[in-house]
Computed example of a mutant assay.
Amino acid sequence: MPLRLVFMGTPEFAVPTLLALSAYGHDIAAVYTREPKPAGRGMKLQETPVALAAHRLGIPVLTPKTLKTEDAQAEFRSHEADAAVVVAYGMILPQPILDAPRLGCFNLHGSLLPRWRGAAPLNRAIMAGDAESGVMVMKMDIGLDTGDVAMAERIAITDAMTVTELHDALARLGADLMVRAMAALERDQLQLTRQPEDGVTYAAKIDKAEAKIDFAQPARAVLRHIHGLSPFPGAWCELPIDGAPVRLKVLRCAIADGHGEPGEVIDDDLTIACGDGAIRVTQLQRAGKQPMTAEDFLRGTPIAKGVRVG
């Protein structure tokens, strides 16, 4: 029979899993998510994507500031859940929370553990030049993404793939994977495997200071850096326009033929030399403007061959 679940998640990445578990017929007793935050021009409080989805499903939503208090832990136990499903919740679960569900807490993680434990696995996988990524269902313990793994699915990372595209693909893949994992748990057939000790890497949170493009790197490394940060926070460079440096986010690019000094524009199509090879910018964004193709940008702002990108 269906499980009684507590769902814990916050961003858009978690929404497909919540919807899939509900559609499967599991009894979702409560949804835990982060508190609303001010956003937009009016700085109005905006609920998380998971909260909005839970409201549409008619599921109670809780937004505790902490799970470390006795009151919060007692409330969590009161749901009498068989299991908790955690997808990008954004808050560390203390041991009393991990121990509360009868069958445990299960996390959907966006990497092929033990590679890329931590906060930004999708960005780091692309930026490191990984050939593949994936999602894993893991039974949580008190460590950082150190629990035993139940199931996994893999996906190839191409050079044309941005982190947004990888995010969307893994969100869909992960929803199906978690449904299958909970079905196996329901039948008492979910098998767990310890993570290997070799190959552990940590996906540190993206620092905005990392976003500046270093054209001294090889072209493929530059491309992966750009796509791993697209669209947020966005890899950037400065281009001299009308005699003044203007910051541009580069959102998409492609490997191109040609060579020159790193950062040198080597043709009229915004191809920029790197330490080895070159990239051609195909999509960019000027501060305060909408993203646009490089073709549209160059139509209004021609950039001459020989200009140096700062």
Rank of each mutant, 00 (worst) to 15 (best):
G174C: 08
P121D: 05
H109F: 09
V6H: 05
R308V: 13
A216L: 13
T66V: 14
G58V: 08
V149Y: 10
L18I: 12
D176P: 01
R187M: 13
G134L: 03
L113G: 02
P302Q: 09
K208C: 12
R194T: 13
A294D: 00
D267P: 03
P101R: 01
L190E: 01
W116H: 02
G9Y: 02
G258V: 05
R56A: 08
A88P: 03
A256G: 09
R280N: 00
I157V: 05
L298C: 04
P2K: 03
L18K: 05
W236I: 09
L229P: 00
V163A: 09
V222T: 01
G134R: 01
G300D: 14
L57T: 03
A54D: 00
I206A: 07
V250S: 02
D242F: 15
V281C: 04
L52T: 12
S133K: 03
M182G: 04
Y24G: 11
A175G: 07
F215S: 00
A171K: 05
I226F: 02
L19G: 07
A287P: 07
G300F: 14
Q95E: 15
E80I: 10
L166E: 04
T162R: 02
A204V: 10
T201V: 06
E35L: 12
R4P: 04
M43Y: 11
V85R: 05
D159W: 10
H109L: 07
E75Y: 09
R41A: 14
Q191P: 08
H26C: 06
L98G: 06
L21Q: 04
L98E: 04
A273G: 06
D148A: 15
G263L: 07
L177S: 01
G25Q: 07
G147N: 05
Q95W: 10
G40V: 11
E264V: 10
T66F: 14
L3K: 02
P36M: 13
V135Q: 02
D267E: 09
I303R: 01
Y32H: 10
A84W: 06
I255S: 06
T158K: 11
V15W: 01
T164E: 15
P49E: 03
E153V: 13
R187G: 06
F232P: 09
